[in-house]
Design a protein around this nucleic acid. Structure first.
Lengths: 350, 350
DNA sequence: TCGGAGTGTCGAAACGCTTCGACTAACCGC
DNA sequence: GCGGTTAGTCGAAGCGTTTCGACACTCCGA
């Protein structure tokens, strides 16, 4: 494997000149540059990434911290990771995966101290997140995908849950719905301070209250069976329900199955709108599910790009970006059982 | 940030002794070791990963090569990547993601020459794969997840498509089915030499022929709509069809929707079995889909573990592992419309 | 005509580790 | 009691870059 020394010898210059030719830190004469280029081509030279990192104290490696267990945004997660890796590569960086249990926070400290990464992207951030606390105490640049309870001083990009929920409610209300329930994640997830659960529920309550509509929120484990049970209980407690906002893919499918089993038509009797989901998942249901699609790709790119700017000192403004989910209207949302008039909502749908 | 030098000074020994205490390459006296340990604790010392890599010519980094586009085993891919990253970390290695288009093969060469990674895991291997050719010419250790047309000399782990298809057919034949169609990936995918498509189709043909059963294979794009169309055409051409083996999640859901729309009951009239899928996906359908679950986690671990053995020279035998998908019987496979006798299959099901 | 401001290049000193050869003591079998 | 191991330690030479200070030129305005 050719080294810089070999190139320098072949080109008849010193190693430092080769380095300058490569990095552009200092000017190099045209003729010299050409000779160096020729030598590099001849030897098939590629700079050794590790040596470069050691000398420059910059590794061009970004660590992606993610809890291996519990993939909240499961569908979007792969998209997200892929987008992050691509964005990194485009800018000459590498992305290393740091699968870390939520308990093994000390590993985060090791990661930082090993100086393997120039910066860190944190996924699946919790409202109170010890990893973030740790990073905050270090000098390592980092960005959050998601956000803590108090994210003001931190670089972060997250789903705009507020706008997403508002959009979901708007869509249904425009169709004439008044009695809308929210099928959320498990209460355990909520209680542990899982941001998406907390924020969507708050937003749902706010926007429904703003409209003087009743607030019905149901927690549900992430299984189809739990979804069935939840739906049964919901319809018993609220027989006039005409629409369901969900944030729980397996439960959504379970709930829809239960609806069909009970002889309800979708969307003629009940509309279903799954938020923080993806068209890919939506495509699997029958009828095809109306979703609000999590911006995994955008968040991945944004997190990495912004982190790199931070590392390189070119960051203009701190990253405080909230991206709403995009509405993808398919076949599970419709005017509901009161289509004719659409002025008043009928009491007692189902 | 404390360096080894600081530790050595504080402990009153030379740096090389500290290094030996850390790596165990040469013995160190108990008292000395204790002093060194104390010094490390006091300083909060963590060895600098980059410096270590440069000096030892071992980075403890593994590159995961994956084409960002077209995630064949989409559902399993995240699982796979996570498992690979975890396995790596357990053994003190890091996993870096190398999202590389199938065209940008030259990037593979750069990757190798930069000496950033000690070894490479290749995902989504094609029957003729230029990346593999390139790696074969280098001295870099690598393992394949998947395999080329002639994988004999190469370390690889893959799904045992043969056994998987055999298992699928067995399951259906035991239930009494005789007229079974295979809904595969797109013909483009097959023609481009996508291993899973090629191998499952060959296996399907073989095992059906072995049993003197008709071979019906239908290619299908990966969308629900394509699945609907495919199903329509299949039932027209083969009205006696009682079972469907599929390897195409979106198309499977489309086909099932079409079946229901046409008034067929699942599994009473037609059974559906999705192979190289996952229970997670299966849980979304109604009725719940019987699947054969892709061993993403196992493959991820296996690929990384074996690669590390290879790197460290402790590999006993070459990696030639084929793992079949595990059958997860749910609600979409059953005896079919000929349950009563189960000896002869009736002509003309539908 | 001279000082100063670029240009272009070089040599050497890092960067923080591993590893090699050498050396000292202690211990062994005979 | 003597050569031969073995345990334990040290100093120094890398690993392949980047970066700093220095130096030699050329060019330009005063």
């Amino acid at each position: 494997m050719a080294t810089m020394n070999d190139v320098a010898k072949l080109a008849g210059v010193s190693v430092s000149t080769v380095s300058y030719a490569l990095t552009g830190v200092r000017p190099v004469g045209d003729k010299t540059r050409a000779r160096i280029q020729a030598a590099m081509d001849e030897l098939g030279y590629q700079p050794n990434a590790i040596a470069r990192s050691l000398a420059s104290r910059r590794t061009r490696i970004i660590a992606l911290l993610f809890p291996a267990i519990e993939h909240g945004l499961s569908g979007a997660a792969l998209e997200f990771v892929t987008a992050a890796a691509e964005a990194a590569r485009e800018q000459g960086y590498h992305l290393v995966l740091w699968p870390i249990g939520n308990d093994e926070v000390s590993e985060t400290r090791d990661l930082i101290q090993q100086r393997l990464a120039d910066g860190v992207v944190v996924m699946e951030v919790r409202l109170e997140d010890p990893r973030v606390t740790l990073l905050g105490q270090s000098t390592t640049p980092f960005t959050l995908i998601g956000r803590t309870a108090e994210p003001a001083g931190l670089d972060h990009a997250d789903i705009d849950f507020d706008a997403t929920v508002a959009g979901a409610i708007d869509h249904l209300v425009e169709l004439g719905h008044r009695s809308i329930a929210f099928l959320s994640r498990s209460s355990a997830s909520r209680d542990s301070g899982y941001g998406p659960a907390v924020r969507t529920e708050e937003a749902f309550e706010k926007y429904m209250t703003d409209r003087d509509l009743p607030v019905v929120i149901r927690h549900c484990e992430g299984t189809a069976d739990a979804g069935r049970t939840a739906l049964t209980e919901l319809t018993v407690a609220h027989p006039d329900l005409t629409a369901l906002v969900t944030m729980n893919d397996p439960a959504t499918f379970g709930a829809m199955a239960e609806l069909l089993d009970r002889g309800h038509r979708i969307p003629d009797d009940v509309s279903v709108l799954s938020i923080v989901s993806s068209p890919k998942v939506g495509a699997l249901s029958h009828p095809r599910l109306t979703t609000m699609c999590a911006p995994g790709t955008e968040l991945g790119r944004l997190g990495v790009t912004s982190l790199i700017e931070r590392i390189e000192g070119t960051q203009a403004a701190p990253l405080h970006e909230l991206i709403p989910c995009r509405l993808d209207v398919q076949a599970t949302t419709g005017p509901g059982p009161f289509a004719s008039g659409r002025l008043e909502h009928p009491q007692g749908g189902t």
